[in-house]
Design a protein around this nucleic acid. Structure first.
Lengths: 227, 227
DNA sequence: GCACTCTAAATTGTATCCAATTTTGGATTC
DNA sequence: GAATCCAAAATTGGATACAATTTAGAGTGC
């Protein structure tokens, strides 16, 4: 996987760790030791530190002074704030995307949904969650707003942590239908409908959380990284 | 200034540089040499690099591989995107702020406006611009949405760069009236009006730019840092 | 048996060092 | 005189070294 000419940089390490968090292979609270990460990727601590700082800036990792890096554990208020920010950004972005979506874009989104269904069928919930997030990010990309897309990307990542900590309705595939409806609105260039659907989809997500007690908590080894 | 117990960290260096950019003491395109910055702050390149990476993540600095760090020069499309993102976030945030604003909050905002006027009077346009940005950030803080406030903070910073590059209407104190009207709407808890005012204020800002040719460009020494 | 303390190991923060790349300046050529 | 090329200087990327802090654990006392 990393044998040949794969140049490992701070950016790729950060992306790999973010991906692992996205797929819930790295639980919130997990310690990310510099030596350990450096050993896994075969680089010195210098590069690892840059990667961790980058992740900390995205709020995926919390840096505690003299104590090291941990996968972030968003508080209840932070969880609410993340979804409120998404509610501000994503509906209007979906409207823009509906205006601009090409047949190719629709095809890409459809493939995302298909892959997500396949992942759910074969029981890989982590991958399904990742693909579900990518669907949202793809819409932002279609809207052709790089700046907003970057914010949404960060919020989607943080939502992954929120879901790991506070998700309640296990097994309910509430995503599939919402995403499918959104896809149709986009295909029909119905911006108003896309905006509405995104809005209610985000509300659904937030209400599917149990913000009283965190479900997950135990931390896993970062050995679940490389594969 | 930095003599006594001031512990200089990557964070404080990043803040100082960001402040200098905010006040237009550091022009877009300025080279930020690691050795130079390190010498100014009395730290090694290690901590300078961390600060520059942090600024790069905020898009205030552009890191060119093997070439070093430069104060960012937002493109025309990036300039538009920054203001479109602000148009998405700030009006609704102003509405929330109007709901929550306490007399103390209003006092703080009034003081901001007063200081801004004073800065304009004594001809320190840089400081006035900085305070004008802080006004927007303060509203986000009043809305009690840390996540959104962080985004707005980044966008305000980037707006500073955009203004440095593309500002046209020199001398027009278009800010003062808009901010004063906003303050009144907030004081009266008139959320709808605050939202409208913020919306049109942002449109005004965007239309005050000449997005055809960049006005500023020459780069200044980073010796304009410490004071 | 439990808590406390003190020491040793481990981990992070920062500085320095070396290799690689870029930049600069001058000499050469047309 | 202008462009090109080559070598020296400067700058960045990354690894290592060392100091400071935290963590772990054994030992002691009650």
């Amino acid at each position: 996987m990393d044998g040949a000419g794969s140049d490992i940089t701070a950016e790729t390490i950060a992306a790999d760790i973010a991906f692992a968090v996205h797929e819930h292979r790295l639980a919130p609270g997990s310690k990310l030791s510099e030596d350990e990460v450096g050993h896994v990727f075969g680089v010195s601590r210098t590069v690892v530190r840059a990667a961790l700082q980058r992740l900390a800036h995205d709020r995926l990792v919390e840096l505690k002074r003299n104590r090291g890096a941990f996968v972030a554990q968003p508080s209840v208020t932070e969880a609410r704030e993340v979804f409120e920010a998404r509610a501000l950004l994503e509906p209007r972005t979906a409207r823009s995307a509906a205006r601009r979506a090409t047949p190719d874009d629709i095809g890409i989104l459809q493939r995302h949904i298909d892959e997500e269904h396949a992942a759910v069928r074969e029981g890989s919930a982590g991958r399904a969650l990742y693909l579900s997030g990518r669907f949202h990010l793809e819409i932002a990309r279609i809207a052709d707003q790089a700046t907003i897309a970057e914010f949404i990307g960060q919020l989607v990542s943080r939502s992954s942590l929120v879901i790991a900590l506070y998700w309640e309705r296990r097994g309910a595939l509430c995503e599939s239908h919402a995403h499918h409806a959104l896809l149709r609105a986009l295909a029909e260039h119905d911006g108003a409908r896309a905006e509405e659907l995104m809005q209610s989809h985000l509300v659904d997500l937030l209400t599917s959380l149990d913000l009283r007690n965190r479900t997950s908590a135990p931390t896993s080894l970062s050995q679940a990284l490389k594969l």
